[in-house]
């Protein structure tokens, strides 16, 4: 028996919009810790890890650890039927091949349930150890989204370099080249407008912009994004979900031939 009641149902809607273009089918895992997912894109270049902690739900009942295979496009279709202010409850019965999403309007005058078929997904689960990163950049998520979009009109890849000068996003394409440098800026009115650069060592890595742009679909989840870089590791682009957890995207770098 599974029953997860999320008062801020819009969070789940936003999570699905953030990941459904990157991953088609995925297993959602439910345990005492929370509702989570780990999945790679079809080419195994990017990985998404989601955690919605059990404490973030108004009611969280998960009698035993369970993994439920879902088609994210179908799940998104159903969640789009929930209002932005609706309370969403996810319900499942042991051994059932379906899951139910219940949507309640804030005034309780409309209650809908949508039953979705589950699927068997044979997916590989990866262990991602805690790592020391050479540089961690915290910046407004809308600014990161803007940079990725702007650069992708010039080139296909972005070089992200962190030095003591700041963080530089560079691209090059048939029509020319572009460089965008952000300096640390903590003298802003609101903390969510700050750019904070922690650097242990200078680092420079190249990534496919197509994936970066896909990650920025998570922008509505958080006003800030954290980009963690290390020369031997995939970049981690993290959007924190207030009070609940996170969506983290891991992207393997491109290297010189």
């Amino acid at each position: 028996m599974l029953e997860l009641r999320l008062v801020q149902g819009s969070l789940l809607k936003k999570v699905l919009e953030a990941i459904k273009d990157l991953v088609t089918d995925a297993n959602f895992d439910c345990s005492a810790t929370g509702f989570s997912l780990q999945a790679m894109d079809s080419s195994h270049v990017a990985l998404v890890a989601l955690l919605l902690r059990s404490e973030g739900f108004e009611h969280y009942r998960c009698d035993r650890n369970i993994s439920m295979g879902m088609n994210l496009n179908n799940m998104s279709k159903m969640l789009k039927c929930a209002g932005n202010d609706d309370i969403i409850t996810i319900k499942g019965d042991d051994g059932s091949d379906t899951i139910t999403f219940m949507f309640e309007s804030p005034t309780q005058d409309k209650i809908a349930d949508f039953e979705m078929k589950l699927m068997d997904i044979d997916s590989e689960h990866l262990g991602i150890p805690e790592a020391e990163y050479h540089a961690i950049v915290r910046m407004p998520s809308a600014e990161f989204s803007r940079i990725c979009k702007d650069l992708s009109s010039i080139g296909d890849t972005v070089v992200i370099s962190v030095t003591k000068e700041g963080v530089k996003f560079s691209t090059r394409g048939d029509i020319g080249a572009a460089n965008i440098v952000l300096r640390q800026n903590t003298t802003v009115d609101k903390p969510e407008e700050a750019t904070i650069i922690e650097m242990n060592e200078p680092v420079s890595l190249t990534f496919a912009l197509r994936y970066m742009n896909s990650f920025t679909k998570a922008t509505p989840l958080s006003s800030m994004v954290t980009i963690s870089l290390s020369s031997e590791l995939p970049v981690v682009v993290e959007y924190k979900i207030a009070e609940m957890g996170y969506v983290r995207f891991y992207l393997a770098p491109k290297i010189e031939e």
Partner: peptide, 14 residues
């Protein structure tokens, strides 16, 4: 323009 690495080259199956 370079070789695209894949995630499974970095992290192991559990």
């Amino acid at each position: 323009k370079g070789v695209q690495l894949i995630i499974t080259e970095f992290y192991r199956s559990t």
